[in-house]
Design a protein around this nucleic acid. Sequence first.
DNA 1: CTCGCTAGGTCCTAAAGAGGACTTGAGGAC
DNA 2: GTCCTCAAGTCCTCTTTAGGACCTAGCGAG
Lengths: 263, 263
Amino acid sequence: MVTSDLGAFAPKYQRVANDLRRRIRQGEWQPGDRLPAETALAEHYDLSVPTMRQAVAVLRAEGAVESRHGVGTFVKEERRLQRRSRDRYGRARKDSRLLTAHLEHTILSAGRGPLPAHIAAVLDDAEPGDEVVIRRRLLTDPKTGTPEEVGASYVPLGIAAETFLEEPTVVPKAMFLCVEELAGKRYAQARDHWIARLPTPEETQVLGLPTGAPVMHVIHVARAEDGSVLEVSESVWPADRIMLIDEYPVEPEAAMPEAPSEI
Amino acid sequence: MVTSDLGAFAPKYQRVANDLRRRIRQGEWQPGDRLPAETALAEHYDLSVPTMRQAVAVLRAEGAVESRHGVGTFVKEERRLQRRSRDRYGRARKDSRLLTAHLEHTILSAGRGPLPAHIAAVLDDAEPGDEVVIRRRLLTDPKTGTPEEVGASYVPLGIAAETFLEEPTVVPKAMFLCVEELAGKRYAQARDHWIARLPTPEETQVLGLPTGAPVMHVIHVARAEDGSVLEVSESVWPADRIMLIDEYPVEPEAAMPEAPSEI
DNA sequence: CTCGCTAGGTCCTAAAGAGGACTTGAGGAC
DNA sequence: GTCCTCAAGTCCTCTTTAGGACCTAGCGAG
């Protein structure tokens, strides 16, 4: 009953989108292939071009196809980067390189600024507007030139003020190793906040996203043994490029103090 | 340079969507308030109704507003359920209740079936099509009647065959406690795969999602001490209702064996 | 008072068409 | 050969127009 008449009374653009998706999955067009032009598709499905465009827009938002203005619409390869939340520190400590060495790092800006509200919201001990050192970065695939990640790091003034972290140049090693050195404390605990959402207009532009494509957003809070914040880092990826993997032991008894809450 | 002329040459529907978003953020309309009708908005912004609708569709996909057919468009409350990945077992073991006691559970189906390809893809030791016991569930907010989560559990035949897990009735306690009892093994390790994407047509219908709204999807693999799979569970939420929180210690030295890879 | 009908307002889908912007490739000028 | 120009093909934005579906409130009949 619940899943009975799916598609029977669905709008045309959805039915057509479903059919196109199926044809792509079945391999009628391979990754990289160009789909027929919108006018040709509209004729084939016997509907108007605007409605046809609406159907293609669905697949574009899903990341199944990519439209190039003036050129055509192409099937995209399904490819998700697997990212592990927990091992980032251990691995980088070992070889001391940047965490994402295969990508090209660009520093969009660096310097002091106010703590954004959405960052302060996940901290108990900070207010929006507090002055911190902010480093905004962009990671690009050097092979294709595709932007893969945009993000920022927020470091307390007491650690980063008057240091090279205020300079808009790429740091020589993993960011957290620099912070540890400057702060004289080790990273001891971390908390990640993961949300999926649609991008801001800025993110749409910087990441070159098609309209309607979602992003994955993580805010990473790192603290020292004494509980003080060493760094807050946030990253935004195109959702269709990323899979987060989290591996952990199941504690036989222990329970955490708080119940799930809402904000 | 990178973020200079944002919006200057953006299409109308985007500029209008941005303006509407700003007005909502600034409190011009409170959560629950009805926006002016599309015809009125179109007149106010001096553009056609279809273009106006496209602008509103942006906010709808973002989860900022909700349109009710024949009634109007209303500002939604921003409200994310915080969900912790790590403490689900500890807490449930403590009071033995269902993990999400405040939601109403419905079993959509239960019985044997083939393992879906996207589940097999995250397992090393299973093939798509393997016969397992599948329980599909829907969680609803009893206060509002809103569907909040749709998901499924996959349990090996060796554990669940010929048991009450094949019956489409709600289990009396947390699912994993039932599995532990039937298998005679404890849950020891877990691995979560998080992805954000646009929903399938089925999910759109079951969760009552507006077009273009993304979902968060997790596949949770639970194994016993000996490495055998006890249960694979997957859940899908509307993305604008959920925030995943993950808290963990930073290991001072240890590194995990494998580098990030692609699939 | 209760019930059912109706009218008006609202959002939803669809078509047809015009103009614009972008890319590519062919042909001609140098 | 190299560079430029141009035309064709493609996707992008926006408008105008039409009809349908859905909900609510008000009115009248019983």
